[in-house]
């Protein structure tokens, strides 16, 4: 038996730690809390770098969204959904329940679908975030988007961005997903219009290419 210990924090070869230092939390906020409790705690913890904490009022950080860098001020308590929608104006990501139950806010973080409403934006620093706005390349729709349209895998469309993000994760992980795999991996996305059967069709067709 052997150790199964991949590096979950690597972002295309850059370890998250370096990435964080290099591009992530800048020292803009440093002056603000240099003398504060945060720093005392950090020093006590043997951490020298202020980039290892974020004060209540937040700090400027780099988010890497849809292959673009965004410099944005983030408070620790802000969720990724909030920051995407309110600060980056990426309103394609919806929130339907604010509790990770409906999946409307699904984005990919390093290719894994997550509920951006239940994910702190600061935790996304240094990671690759893909939102619905980043699925098509230039003017070309992704095959999944095409299949969603061709198969009418949408009605009111409010759940659609989340549904597509989960579907994208499916076809990235599994080139030939079967019905059961698709259903299981879409089980975090609610569609009140009841469009699921056509979503399944669209995913199967998109996976086939």
């Amino acid at each position: 038996m052997k150790k199964d210990k991949p590096d979950p924090n690597s972002v295309k070869g850059i370890s998250r730690r370096n990435f964080l230092k290099g591009f992530g939390i800048t020292t803009v906020g440093a002056a603000v809390f240099e003398s504060g409790q945060a720093t005392k705690n950090l020093k006590a913890a043997g951490l020298l770098n202020v980039s290892d904490s974020i004060p209540i009022e937040g700090a400027k950080m780099i988010l890497y969204v849809n292959s673009k860098e965004y410099s944005v001020h983030i408070k620790p308590k802000e969720t990724l959904a909030e920051v995407l929608r309110e600060k980056l104006e990426l309103t394609g990501t919806k929130t339907g329940c604010e509790r990770g139950s409906c999946g409307a806010c699904t984005v990919l973080i390093d290719d894994n679908p997550v509920n951006s409403c239940m994910f702190l934006a600061v935790d996304a620093v240094g990671k690759q975030i893909t939102t619905i706005e980043g699925v098509a390349s230039d003017e070309n729709l992704h095959i999944l988007q095409n299949e969603f349209i061709e198969n009418d895998a949408l009605q009111c469309g409010f759940c659609t961005p989340g549904m597509i993000m989960s579907s994208l994760a499916i076809i990235k992980k599994n080139p030939a997903p079967d019905d059961e795999y698709i259903r299981k991996n879409l089980s975090g996305n609610l569609c009140r219009c009841g469009t699921y059967p056509k979503v399944f069709q669209a995913v199967i067709k998109a996976a086939k290419g």
């Binding site: 730690r17 705690n41 290892d52």
Partner: peptide, 22 residues
Amino acid sequence: MIKDFEYYLPKATEQALTLFSK
């Protein structure tokens, strides 16, 4: 609505332990 908090990103458990306060 979430009340504001400070956020720490320790790299080791020992650091985390020290950072924990009231």
